[in-house]
């Protein structure tokens, strides 16, 4: 198991009039190799949950185990935890600060105790990995990059410490459709070669449907569903109650079913859906 979360609850500002219960008895396990999507409306506790995985919020009740690191212990090794779990926040380009892109990307590894040469080597590797031209950008100021390049540089800054688990909080927010696709393809690519496990928060159901092998749904701090997207997205009634909408592919499938055309198998990705529709059309001819 790469992640084990048991009975996790969390309240902001406990004991004051501003107290707000953000997580309520959440338990789940993630095996190495999974791509987990976390969805839920605003204020459902998604960000609070993932901040726990990185030790950014102190565990107050329940337990979390990440590989062999026990977060419920008195003094968990936060440095090792944070180099194991790479965390990419929303709009990560706003965290860039160094004089050059290379130095900025090396910030993580240097903090985690790598020697200077090793840190710069890791940084160079991460910059290449995210698809930036190393020689062109490494001595540039990060503020000279374009929006999409900045986001890639920030992702490189997280990848440089070679995390085994990558947590992404709305990685495509604020990007144009092409930029979104590029970032998601990058994540899929990383998943096959570089990081073992990916957790992704998103408001975009289409992204989740297409890229995740498993989905957690949070509502009001509680985990209300945990399963494969092709199973979860089939249950229209359940979704109506969550304030979330189904991915477009599932909507099209349901609309076709209403008109008497039933598609077989998993049709959540756009490719699979179009193939299934073509099959039906071909069959009729």
């Amino acid at each position: 198991m790469s992640i084990e979360v048991n009975h996790l609850s969390f309240t902001y500002s406990p004991g004051t009039p501003f107290a707000k219960k953000a997580l309520d008895d959440v338990s789940f396990r993630v095996a190495e190799g999974e791509t987990l999507g976390i969805i839920g409306s605003t204020g459902s506790g998604k960000s609070t949950l993932v901040q726990h995985l990185n030790g950014l919020l102190r565990l107050t009740s329940g337990s979390i185990r990440i590989y062999d690191i026990d977060l419920a212990s008195k003094k968990p090794d936060l440095k090792r935890l944070r180099s194991t779990v790479g965390m990419l926040f929303q709009y990560p380009e706003y965290q860039l600060f160094e004089e050059t892109v290379l130095k900025d990307v090396a910030f993580g590894p240097l903090n985690f105790g790598y020697a200077k040469e090793d840190a710069y080597e890791l940084a160079a590797e991460a910059i290449r990995l995210v698809g930036l031209d190393l020689d062109a950008v490494k001595d540039k100021s990060p503020f000279e990059l374009s929006g999409g390049e900045k986001r890639r540089a920030a992702i490189a800054g997280v990848l440089a410490s070679k995390p085994r688990i990558l947590v992404l909080d709305e990685p495509t927010a604020g990007l144009d459709p092409v930029g979104k696709r590029e970032i998601l393809n990058l994540v899929a690519e990383l998943k096959t070669s570089f990081v073992k496990t990916v957790l992704m928060i998103s408001h975009n159901m289409d992204e989740i449907a297409e890229h995740c092998s498993r989905v957690l749904i949070l509502s009001g701090g509680r985990l209300i569903a945990d399963g494969k997207p092709e199973d979860l997205f089939r249950n229209e009634e359940f979704f109506a109650g969550t304030g979330l909408r189904l991915p477009h592919t599932a909507l099209i499938r349901n609309m076709l079913a209403d008109r008497g055309i039933h598609l077989d198998g998993n049709t959540l990705s756009a490719d699979a859906l179009s193939k299934a529709i073509l099959n039906v059309l071909g069959g009729k001819k």
Binding site: Q51, L56, R82, G86, F89, Y94, Q95, N111, S161
Partner: peptide
């Protein structure tokens, strides 16, 4: 601060000068 902490930044330990430097990011 959260984002930099996730990249291993440490704002809580060290002397005055080290802490001041740690705030640069």
């Amino acid at each position: 601060m959260l984002a930099q902490k996730a990249r291993g930044a440490d704002f809580e330990s060290g002397g005055l000068i080290k802490r001041a430097r740690a705030l640069l990011p």
